[in-house]
């Protein structure tokens, strides 16, 4: 199935992403081509995953695995097949993570295993798609810090995706072509403190956002 995924990404997803968004990249050379690595981005749209997949060089694609919500992507069989085999998601069980009373489930286990295998994990720390065009991100969950702690060998690369929320906002059915810009930042390494790590990641994302072309979306 791996070859089918590679073919689909190179022949369908990548041209589609270029046609719809232009895939304007700043700092492409900072994208990891070897795992283990974590790419952490802001999340406004399903286009985000498509854009990031379209960005990686073909030789790295086999290793690139987007972390995605199990409750959303695994609920219907067709979508589930597509998400697992073509997009290559690492399922994260948000429902188990939210349940307050039960035993704290180890929802990040699949993501940790992927990193241990040497994969490049794409993760959206907001945990859900935020409001499109809003200047601010939704508050980030610290799962990304826990993953960096569990796998200190993996650098965390901050990525700001500008404009994807206009192309395909939450709830919209069809994408509308608009330029998207992806800004790749300097890698952040685990230094022993979760809160401090999250602050550095937030700061890095905010600095990338400042460099992004303006969104005139009122």
């Amino acid at each position: 199935m791996a070859w089918l995924r590679l073919l689909f990404i190179i022949l369908v997803l990548r041209p589609l992403a270029v046609l719809i968004t232009g895939v304007d990249v700043v700092g492409r050379e900072r994208l990891p081509v070897r795992g283990p690595a974590i790419v952490a981005g802001n999340h406004n749209s399903h286009m985000d995953t498509l854009l990031l997949l379209a960005l990686f060089p073909s030789r790295a694609l086999a290793r690139v695995r987007p972390a995605a919500a199990a409750d959303y992507f695994l609920k219907d069989p067709a979508l589930s097949w597509f998400a697992r085999n073509i997009v290559g998601i690492v399922p994260i069980d948000r429902a188990a993570a939210r349940a307050p009373d039960s035993q704290p489930a180890d929802v990040l286990a699949p993501a940790r295993e992927a990193l241990a295998r040497g994969d490049i994990l794409l993760i959206f720390p907001e945990g859900t798609r935020g409001e499109p065009g809003h200047a601010t991100m939704a508050p980030m969950k610290n799962g990304v810090a826990r993953l960096a702690e569990a796998c200190p060998a993996a650098p965390v690369i901050p990525v700001w995706i500008q404009g994807a929320g206009r192309v395909l906002p939450k709830g919209a059915v069809a994408p509308v072509p608009m330029t998207c810009c992806v800004l790749v930042g300097e890698p952040i390494r685990w230094a022993g403190d979760r809160a401090q790590f999250m602050d550095r990641l937030r700061g890095a994302l905010e600095r990338l956002e400042e460099q992004a072309p303006p969104l005139r979306w009122r």
Binding site: G22, G133, G163, R166, P169, A172, V176, P177, M178, T179, P213, P214, R216, W217, R218
Partner: peptide, 15 residues
Amino acid sequence: REFLSLAPARREDRL
């Protein structure tokens, strides 16, 4: 695509 992405637009104008 470039022009419409930079132009001031309203949320409703996506269509």
